[in-house]
Write a protein that binds this DNA or RNA. Structure first.
Lengths: 129, 129
DNA sequence: ACGTATCTACTACCTTGGTAGTATTACCAC
DNA sequence: GTGGTAATACTACCAAGGTAGTAGATACGT
């Protein structure tokens, strides 16, 4: 029953989702706390508002615990990643997986180790065909 | 003089850019024409307005030819692709190239042939290290 | 010369993401 | 029981993407 809807999350939305996926649910305060490092801190109400909007969109749901809401993901990380990645591959490389990987490999720094891992990955994938 | 600015184009913007990249410049009518297949057709003014907005953002420029504008790309496809792909890899996979490729490989259909090509690609890349 | 088609300019509107302030409610500590 | 604290609700705003209508200018065919 994985909804085949295509998900397109904004930056903040995705960061929030990552917190929820990681802890399988969190209050506004917890999300805020988790996001507070690394970059400019947001207002409590920013998170709260965003979560409410996301609930309307069906990305999250909440249950009440005491006086506060515990939000939980309503979509799976895998689905979101897949649909966003696919969307980009389609947009940028007309759906060509090869072109996409090729692009990544030629425009980014890659370590020898990563290449080795990738080789292994492909070998594995081959076996499964 | 490749601006290192990070580009984030919307769907329509990208489709327009692709037309401009392909023909190194085009009038509104030509762009509209090129986009008209495949999906719901847009209004002439939609393209015109979008191009004007894109010019403000520095994505395109125009010269006048007769009474009409010929728009030309002001950013390179490679740069746009790179920055959009990187952005996604960062957002979705915390910057891990391996995770990104791995995800693509496991959630998409891949033909034996593609895998072979990828192997070759990686081997080549390895040599260049 | 006149009407029609073609262009650009301007304006408008809707949606979504992002950000946050204010108001209200409810609970907790003392 | 009163003040502070922590939550949610509501409202507002801005920017950007997307879509398109209307108006005004211009060229072109006959």
């Amino acid at each position: 029953m994985a909804k085949n809807k295509t998900h397109r999350l904004g930056d903040l939305q995705l960061r929030i989702m990552k917190v929820l996926w990681e802890r399988r649910g969190a209050s506004v305060a917890e999300v805020l706390d988790a996001l507070d490092d690394s970059d400019a801190s947001l207002a409590y109400t920013t998170i709260a508002t965003m979560l409410r909007k996301m609930e309307v969109r069906g990305l999250v749901s909440h249950r009440t615990e005491g006086r506060s809401f515990i939000y939980a993901p309503q979509v799976e990380e895998r689905d979101v990643s897949r649909s966003m990645a696919n969307h980009l591959v389609d947009r940028l490389f007309e759906g060509s997986l090869f072109d996409a990987v090729s692009h990544l490999l030629t425009t980014r720094e890659v370590s020898r180790d990563e290449l080795k891992q990738l080789e292994k990955l492909i070998a594995d994938r081959k076996k499964k065909l």
